[in-house]
Design a protein around this nucleic acid. Structure first.
Lengths: 380, 380
DNA sequence: GTGAAAGCGCTAACAT
DNA sequence: ATGTTAGCGCTTTCAC
């Protein structure tokens, strides 16, 4: 075969020389037009565009990447099959990336994946990307040597030399690469607000159903919960850990239901919160009359389960947007200082799964002030 | 700059000649090794691999694509922000694509996107992909001319000439391109099974809360529902249409709750089903005692809402796997016949949101046989 | 089994 | 404002 296999149809795909010939200009001028470079007269530009249209010309990205050394694409490493957070974040990233003119390459890594995040990053580097986004990483340090010297990699098990800027969403920066940026919704602040909401309602303490602690996201939320408790001078009760699934929330709920002291639980995500509530209700503990529950994420059905869930909404879009703006900046201005970070707002959505604790005198029958909460409160 | 911008670190990235030199072979031999071509002695292969490792060599994909005319990447057009179906499908596709040795490029298109699917396909073609997957498309015919002749595109508004194989998941084939394949979970069969489950329970008829009819997926489910009704000689009652969201399910539920004739509803997805149930319960109609509800998707929380939702699980992974196997086959064997299709199994998950209809004599108080359904039935 | 030569279609640097 | 000349780092074709 000669060229353009895959371009199908029989006749080969037109190249920029073909367009140049038809437009009566040099090949370089065609290149100029397609790169929006200055110094092309309006007339020439129009002629080139017309010729291109007529031929069905499409810039060959492989050639462009080869010649320029830039692929104009950004890779994303995403974790967790279809968990609401990662999935939503991915969509947000996709939207923003498209606006920046970059293409998106996606690699999904599940927990327990042998190659893990390092493998995903490696495969992205193989594909050739100008920058990498790691979305909601888990604890799994990547062995790297990205030293400026001519050092030959022979350190860890999966040595990866990352020469492109990396944006880590929802985790602290401990990632050795040329440039590392972080972005995040300040989940700790949100967790803190959620916990404080419960404390303000009058609960003596608040239990926490955490996410898997390998996830930074889970640790962040736990930290916020702990901070809220500490700030109010409360003891920090033991943590129960789930795996983000409703099933694990259900299991945790069966345990917590047996403890009459439990009147409020802050759960690290909505799925677990729903499982937890189910277990509580099955055990005869009413929500929110006996036990208040706050979730995290504001998944689409959160406002419609029974009872409608009080939860925290993460600003995924804002995080993706800001993070990518900074990543693209780092890609295009290798030497410049990274752009400043700004904290997103905390968005606590109060629905009907939270209420004051039952009155201590008549355990299990407290019902103060719940009448004011209609079932539809706080729906989107 | 000379070469390897973006490869960072100071020293340029090693090329295959460098590896060749170090290994004492020709550059072509290095190429052979990295392409798993035959006719390389085990000894040479080892030496090359060692040299490559030592240098931290990475095959340059842009150069490879330019020289070979193949990008070894597949593009995915996905719809619907973070809807469970499309999101899950995307993850499935990603997993499978990685196994096939192709890279994945993703473009997200939301409903109402000006450029729409055609624009997404176009941008994928711009990026250069060997094949395209369109996941759960909506009704928005793409103007194309992919004729074998030298035809110049001047037909529709967004003329796109698609020269690579296209796989359409969850929709009929009406898509003019070089090669078009379809794959799908036979949602119609599943919808039919769901409806029949309700009919078998003794319901006189079954109402349907449909998804937006621009989506093939929504029409498919509606069709299955209609077919089940017809097969049982029942009249087809009017359809209520939602937009997949729990909020729209809630709105529909408020309407249906007022109609005492309604004893069973088949809902096109779980989110809407949850919204619907909420509205029903708020209106004083018990589920499943007064009204039975079947959802669609089996979202992670489906087994833990109140009542646990009877629903249908789509075989996303199987669909992605089979579809991609066929797409890759079409990419690599342009002339060969497409691989045969096989129907995935129907997976109806019966939990507690369905029961026999209330006895007609004491409207609103029927409770036959519901005691046997524990709250935890059918959980994963 | 291995190598040499010739592009792939573009962008970069330097003309003009 | 536009054209010329070199590559970018591979795969291909053909020779050995």
């Amino acid at each position: 075969m000669t060229r353009g296999t895959g371009r199908g149809g029989g006749s080969a795909a037109p190249r920029s020389v073909d367009v140049a010939r038809l437009a009566g200009v040099s090949q370089k001028t065609v290149s100029r037009v397609f790169n929006d470079e200055p110094y092309v007269s309006a007339d020439v530009r129009r002629r080139v565009l017309e010729a291109a249209e007529q031929l069905g010309y499409r810039l060959n990205n492989a050639a462009r990447a080869l010649a320029s050394g830039r692929t104009r694409s950004i890779g994303v490493v995403t974790l967790g099959t279809a968990l609401y957070g990662p999935a939503t974040l991915l969509m947000g990233v996709e939207r923003v990336v498209r606006d920046t003119g970059y293409a998106l390459r996606v690699v999904n890594t599940m927990e327990g994946d042998p190659a893990g995040i390092a493998g995903a990053v490696d495969s992205l580097l193989d594909q050739g990307v100008d920058g990498i986004v790691i979305s909601e990483p888990i604890d799994e340090p990547i062995d790297e040597e990205s030293d400026e010297s001519d050092g030959v990699g022979d350190g860890g098990d999966v040595p990866v030399r990352v020469g492109v800027p990396v944006l880590v969403i929802g985790a602290p920066p401990p990632f050795p690469a040329a440039t590392v940026l972080t972005a995040g919704g300040r989940a700790d602040l949100m967790a803190r607000a959620a916990t404080e909401h419960l404390l303000d309602l009058g609960h003596v303490t608040v239990r926490h159903l955490a996410g898997p602690q390998r996830w930074y996201a889970a640790r962040d939320r736990l930290e916020g919960w702990r901070a809220a408790l500490a700030a109010h001078g409360r003891d920090v009760p033991p943590v129960v850990e789930g795996d983000w699934s409703a099933a694990s929330g259900y299991a945790a709920g069966r345990v917590l239901a047996d403890d009459p002291e439990v009147t409020a639980v802050f759960v690290a995500n909505d799925d677990m919160a729903i499982g937890l509530i189910r277990a509580l209700v099955e055990a005869g503990r009413r929500v929110p009359e006996d036990v208040s529950v706050v979730g995290f994420d504001d998944i689409p059905v959160a406002g419609y389960v029974t009872p409608p869930l009080t939860t925290v909404r993460q600003p995924f879009d804002a995080v993706a947007q800001e993070g990518l703006k900074r990543l693209v900046h780092a890609i295009e201005n290798p030497q410049a200082d990274p752009l400043p970070v700004s904290d997103p707002p905390v968005d606590l959505i109060i629905r009907s799964s939270t209420a004051p604790p039952p009155s201590r005198t008549t355990p299990g029958h407290g019902r103060r002030r719940t009448a004011s909460r209609s079932g539809r409160e706080g729906r989107p």
